[in-house]
Amino acid sequence: MLSIGEFSKICRVSTKTLRYYDEIGLITPDEINAENGYRYYSINQLKRMLFINRLKSYHFSLDEIKAILELEENHAEDQLYSTLHHKREQIQEKLYALEDTLMQLRSDMVNLQQSKSMLTFFDEIDVQLVETESITILYQRQLLNSDDYAAGYEKYFSSLYEQIATNKLTLSGTPITIYHSPEFNPSGNDTEFAIPVGEPVQGTRELTGELCAKSTLKGSYSMLTAVYAKLREWVEKEGYELMNSPYEVYRTDPTHAHSPEDLVTEVYFPIQKIQ
């Protein structure tokens, strides 16, 4: 048996943390001395603690780790594999974001060395005036906070694709997100997820064709804010006004993109000429 101190030293986990893990049922001492309250762990529990530490290094929450331990104890290898696979995708997305940030940072440094503005990229964003056609969209509209967006995109688009498959609808375009809120609110934004289909059925509506200012982003979604700013600047300079909610059309599936540079996103601002 190992005292809590020795167990703590081997596993590099504080005794305070071990006591907390005991409270939440993550790992419980094999033996507690009834007279003095001393806690002892078995040699076999070293592996459990190593497993917990491993999962923590993968940025799983304690609640998630507790659920994973249950999967491991029940020999649910398929579910465990799926959980790890999903976490790997989340970490990969963060790596892509960091790589994109580094690339932007390097670009800004080069511009400064050449006595150029760090916002040179803004002037390079192209805006076109286009007339869109009316399309039928299968949609779900939700109030999402800023933390829900990443999961929301996956959840609601997946749900829409399932409906298309179940009802044998004809897929006629790529996913669209429409932003209806008049202002940004971190606690909740009115967001519509949509996929164009060929048949008008229950759960669909018409996205009306109209005059739009359009810009195409090839790269990370982190640049979308700059695209929106450019479009809004262009609309005002050219004497137009906004008519309906802006929307994004995703020409590439982010789950199939090998890097942010592979992403292609079209942004549309429905407008009309000011009389």
Rank of each mutant, 00 (worst) to 15 (best):
Y96V: 00
H258K: 15
M118K: 07
L95K: 04
S187A: 12
L144A: 10
Y58W: 07
Q45D: 11
N167M: 08
W234N: 01
L129V: 08
K56C: 07
E236Q: 14
E124N: 12
T177S: 12
T208C: 09
V264N: 08
G239Q: 14
P200E: 09
E31M: 13
E64T: 01
S115F: 12
T204Y: 04
D147T: 10
S14G: 15
T170Q: 08
M49S: 04
V249L: 10
P200C: 06
A76P: 05
N44W: 00
G203Y: 05
M243K: 10
E192A: 07
M118N: 06
T255C: 04
Q272E: 09
L95A: 02
L105M: 13
L102A: 05
K9A: 13
R251Q: 03
Y96H: 15
N53Y: 12
R232M: 13
V264H: 06
L207P: 09
P200S: 10
Q92M: 09
Y250P: 06
E64C: 05
S115L: 12
Q128E: 15
F184V: 06
G188T: 04
Y240K: 03
L263W: 05
E241H: 12
R141L: 01
Y153Q: 07
L2K: 10
T17K: 01
D148N: 02
A257S: 15
G219F: 08
Q140E: 14
V110F: 07
D63W: 01
D108K: 06
H59A: 11
V264L: 09
Y228K: 01
Y38Q: 09
E77F: 15
K16D: 04
Q113H: 06
D100H: 13
K237V: 08
R232T: 12
T204C: 14
T15D: 07
Q79H: 12
T216Y: 04
A151C: 03
E31P: 02
I271V: 15
L217V: 14
L112P: 02
K66A: 14
T166L: 09
E248D: 09
K9P: 03
E162I: 05
L160G: 07
E99T: 01
A151G: 05
L263S: 06
I24S: 06
